[in-house]
Amino acid sequence: MEIKVLFTILLTTILINNYVLSQILGLCPFLGVSKKLDSAIGMGLAVIFVMTLASFITFIIYKYVLIPFNIEYLRTITFILVIAALVQLVEMMIEKFSPALYNALGIFLPLITTNCAVLGVAVLNINSGFVTADLGILKSVVQGFGGGVGFTLALLLMAGIRERLELAPIHKNLIGLPITFITAGLMALAFLGFSGMKI
């Protein structure tokens, strides 16, 4: 039964409530890193990793530190610091243990701190009432992982399209950001189709 719930959360965050294309979160890296497919893959993997870990840690901090001390109002400030520290830590760890991976991801890691999808998923985990739910920690980790996968999916699709757009004849006023937004809009329209899905 719980497996089914977890699967629903996973599918919902990847397709139906895709963070980029339906919740409009994490647009800055979505626009900034989607020019090339290779870098998009690196960014996507880094975001999946950080979002999953951030969901886990922020959930624990909220449930076992902020609530017992009655300081829930410090949520925003704690979460953003945790995420910033986490990103820094992950960066150092990867640099130490796997220089090859660091070379691939290195430049994207600092950018993740200001990716609003990461803070977004941490706050959404709390707002979805996972704190009091059974297996709340597992649910928030799954939501974080799904969010990261959904972000990567959108990023990869976009990068694939943008590589081709380079060669397309586009009106000169629409080159660059405008045509990217039109593409994103069409993709969002397509993703709207998932909203009728029954799971």
């Binding site: 006023n173 629409l174 950001l177 405008p178 990217t180 937004f181 809009g185 069409l186 969002a188 329209l189």
Partner: peptide, 25 residues
């Protein structure tokens, strides 16, 4: 209702950016 959802947001901003480029050019 598509205008109030994500696609509308992207399209409207795309048009605004395009207009901006046109005015500046």
């Amino acid at each position: 209702s598509a205008m109030i959802l994500a696609p509308g947001a992207f399209f409207t901003l795309a048009i605004m950016l395009g207009m901006m480029n046109w005015i500046n050019s």
